[in-house]
Amino acid sequence: MWEKLKETQPAVAKMLVNSLKKDRLAHAYLFEGPRGCGKKETAKVLAKSFFCTASSGPDPCLNCPDCKRIESGNHPDVHFIEAEGQSIKVDQIRHLKKEFSFRGVESSKKVYIVDDAEKMTPGAANSILKFLEEPDGEALAVLMTTQFHRILKTIVSRSQVLTFAPLSPERLVGKLVEEGISDTDARTVSQITYDLEEGIQLCSENWIAQARNKVIQLIDEVSMRPKYAFLTLQEVWMPFFKEKKDMQLGLDLFLIWYRDVLRMQVDQTDLIVYTDQKDKLQEQALKLSQRKLGANLQAVMDAKRKLDANTAPQLLMEQLLLRLQEG
C-alpha cells in the first residue's frame, strides 16, 4: 500500500499518490535506483491502483479480481518483460506491441512493466521508443533500471523519471530485527540489499545464516588448510550456491568478510558486519597485509564480473581460490 511505501520512498510515493488523486498519471514512467530499493513493488502497487475499481482512493483494495491477479502475476492486461538471457530483445517488444493491438480482455486499460530496461538491445530500445511516442488507448508503461546512464536519452525525455533512494542499512537492520530476524543475519543482509522484502526472503529458512557459515568455512580452508579448499568448494560450496543469483550473493559475502578484516586493521570495529567472528577477523587482520587484502578484494570483484559474463561457476571459483591463496 502507498502508506507503507511512503516509509521507504516518501518522494516517489507522494508524487504517484498525488497523480492518482488528480487522475493525471503519465503514460510512461522510468523508475531508476539501486537494486532492492522497491521499484518492482511500487510498479505492482501502481498497476493495482490503475486497474482497481473497488476503491475510491489512490490505494488499491487488494481484494478485487484485478488486484489479486496482478499480485499473482497472471492479469491478462498487465505484461511483465524481463531479459531473456543477457538482454531484452526486439522480438519481445514486437510481441508486446502485438498484444497491445488487441482489445483489453476486461477493459481498455493495459500496463506493461519492463525490468532491467538497460538490458534492451538497440533494436528493442528503438522499438519501445516508438511505442512510448504513440501510446495506444489507456496504456501505462513502467520501465525500471539500475543503470540510468545506459537508457536512451530519447526514452528518458519521453518518460517521467522517478529516482528511488536506497534504504539506509541502519533502517533496514531495525526493520529486519522487528520481523524477528537475528541482529547478526540482519546486519549481513543490510550489506547485500536495500529492500526489506528481499531481506526477509534472504533470511527465510535460515538461508543467509547457512550461506554465511559456508563462506566462513571456505575462507578458513583458504587461510589455514589450503589443500582442502578445493574439496570444500566441490562438496560444500557448489551444492549450496547452485543458481547464478545465489553465487553472486555468496561472492558478496566474501567481499563483506575481507572488508571486515580491513576494518579490523584500521580500528573501525564498530562497522564490522561479521560481529560474531571477531577473533577470526583479528587473526586475519594480523596475518594479511593491506596489499594482500586489496588483492583479495579485487579477486572477488573480478569473479563477480566473470559470473555476470557467464563464465562457468566451477572454473570461476577455482580461479578465485588460487588467487586468494597467492602470497
Results as ranks from 00 to 15, higher is better:
319 Q>Y: 09
306 K>I: 00
161 V>N: 00
159 S>M: 04
60 P>L: 05
50 F>I: 01
17 V>C: 11
127 S>M: 11
239 P>D: 10
285 A>D: 08
236 V>S: 14
260 D>A: 08
69 R>M: 12
293 L>E: 06
143 L>Y: 05
72 S>Y: 07
233 L>Y: 01
227 K>F: 13
249 L>I: 07
36 G>E: 03
290 Q>L: 15
81 I>H: 04
194 Y>M: 06
304 K>R: 13
109 K>C: 07
254 F>W: 00
43 A>M: 05
136 D>Q: 15
157 S>Y: 06
217 Q>H: 12
54 A>I: 06
190 S>N: 05
282 Q>M: 11
192 I>W: 07
214 K>V: 00
302 D>K: 10
48 K>L: 01
126 N>P: 00
177 V>H: 04
176 L>P: 00
156 V>H: 07
103 R>G: 06
88 I>M: 08
141 A>E: 01
230 F>A: 07
301 M>E: 15
223 S>Q: 08
282 Q>D: 08
314 Q>T: 13
327 G>M: 00
158 R>K: 08
188 T>L: 15
131 F>M: 13
167 L>S: 14
11 A>V: 10
13 A>S: 10
89 K>I: 11
87 S>Q: 11
299 A>G: 05
315 L>I: 13
27 H>R: 08
32 E>A: 14
265 Q>N: 06
269 T>M: 09
307 L>G: 01
55 S>Q: 09
203 C>A: 14
149 H>R: 13
165 A>H: 13
223 S>M: 11
71 E>L: 10
294 G>C: 09
311 T>A: 11
60 P>H: 03
105 V>P: 00
324 L>V: 02
279 D>E: 11
105 V>G: 03
88 I>Q: 06
65 P>K: 07
207 W>K: 14
254 F>C: 02
126 N>V: 04
220 D>S: 14
80 F>L: 15
225 R>P: 00
184 T>Q: 12
10 P>H: 10
99 E>M: 11
181 I>N: 03
2 W>Q: 04
295 A>Y: 09
55 S>V: 04
127 S>W: 01
83 A>W: 01
18 N>Y: 09
253 L>D: 09
180 G>F: 06
216 I>W: 03
2 W>F: 09
60 P>T: 01
307 L>H: 01
7 E>T: 06
310 N>T: 06
56 S>A: 14
275 T>H: 02
109 K>V: 02
172 L>Q: 10
307 L>E: 02
297 L>N: 06
196 L>D: 00
77 D>Y: 04
304 K>P: 00
83 A>Q: 12
269 T>K: 11
231 L>N: 12
45 V>W: 03
205 E>L: 11
248 Q>K: 14
291 R>S: 14
197 E>K: 14
271 L>K: 15
247 M>E: 08
240 F>P: 01
299 A>L: 02
32 E>F: 07
212 R>F: 01
221 E>R: 08
200 I>R: 11
94 R>G: 12
136 D>R: 15
84 E>M: 06
